[in-house]
Design a protein around this nucleic acid. Sequence first.
DNA 1: TTATTATTATGAACCACGTCACAGTTTTTC
DNA 2: GAAAAACTGTGACGTGGTTCATAATAATAA
Lengths: 237, 237
Amino acid sequence: MNKTICGCNKCNHKLCTQRVSIFSSLNIEQLEKVGELINHKEYKKGDLLIMEGESSESLVIINEGQVKAFKTTQDGREQILYIFSEGDFFGERNLLRDFASPYSVEALEETHVCLIHKSDFQILVKSFPDIAVKIMEELCQRLDRLEHALETMGARTVEARVSSVILEFAEKYGKEHPKGILIELPLSREGIANYIGLTRETVSRKMSLLQSEGILEMIGNKKILLLDRVALEKNIE
Amino acid sequence: MNKTICGCNKCNHKLCTQRVSIFSSLNIEQLEKVGELINHKEYKKGDLLIMEGESSESLVIINEGQVKAFKTTQDGREQILYIFSEGDFFGERNLLRDFASPYSVEALEETHVCLIHKSDFQILVKSFPDIAVKIMEELCQRLDRLEHALETMGARTVEARVSSVILEFAEKYGKEHPKGILIELPLSREGIANYIGLTRETVSRKMSLLQSEGILEMIGNKKILLLDRVALEKNIE
DNA sequence: TTATTATTATGAACCACGTCACAGTTTTTC
DNA sequence: GAAAAACTGTGACGTGGTTCATAATAATAA
């Protein structure tokens, strides 16, 4: 069984399929059936799951861990497009036709994924049309995120861009804390820079500025304590 | 009948549904049935089809004409996200749940649209699951476009951004011409600037530069003759 | 056509971000 | 826990894009 391939206790088929929204319309029996079609794979931090231009044969569902999806521009920059976490998927472009991956995907930490082969997925969609609708919803959310990102990238002031990312991360990775919101950053300063199209130095400087203004507090390199959310939101306006 | 509402000869139900890819899996009888659910509407240049934040009850399919979809940023800038032409649709976010429109849409010229009401569309998807798959494909294309746009916006040089738009427009609106590719611009200089996050002046200057380099020739304000496509492509690298 | 309006081109000055360099700090590894 | 490696902060400087102002041109109306 695949269970043994993975080994972790979280990652048996039932849970694996249950935690993904695209299968949320299926009942338990159906989920088990889907589970039989799934393969598992593990990656270490820094491992590439797929390279831009490569064609993959599977839909990839993140079961544990975190990855970044990015394009490498001709001038060598890395433009990060998405950060996928548990329950997110990618590879949907390949499912219906034969497309090359529009981006590379790299593990930001130890990551476990579920794989469904293209051909299996096509059968699945025919049997359970609701899956297509769910994917549609998920794609719409992704469009929302990109549209918002584009708006951010076009922002006149760099201050607004940095503030915007911090707020985004606060939403996604923030936890309550007596003094404010504690954010575990998924990216380094350089990663953040590549996410919003700036340089590492500029991000550093702006974050220092925000700290000196008492808006946030940097805790080591990987955490931020957001003290004054309202002030950040004003920065965007 | 709705035919009379519209009045144009292109825009009878059959053609209206036939020219849209999301209905391409349907046969003629089915298309006629869909046609009965459709309403028509016309807009003049400058008219707003929908405002950001408004919730619409329909999927809107462009039947004739051209529109721009944009967000108005808090600092007053207008970030253009899409230019929709014949066969494109918008309003898909509202179909399944009750979402507000993520952007405003304004007619760039006389524009005729087909409207399908949310409730009708939901029934349609249940009867013809392939429609969801088609929409999925279309959404994937839109993701491609946005991902590419984000990469462009992050580009170090402004030259690359301007070159990138001109190439995009050449693909979409270019016609063969003895000297190169004749492009009918859908946007003014200011519009182009709002599309790639620059100022009107910078776009002007860069285009003048490209003209002086013999890469293109500006014909009035609304046309460009692209003389050296290869040189433009090199600009992006 | 001419008059009017809208759009575009271009110059000059400013300043913010990128670049380069290096010191300081955090994180990882053994 | 110490050493190595990776990452971050910050100063100085130059460049290029924005801003503001104005002239020139194109599109539209009369």
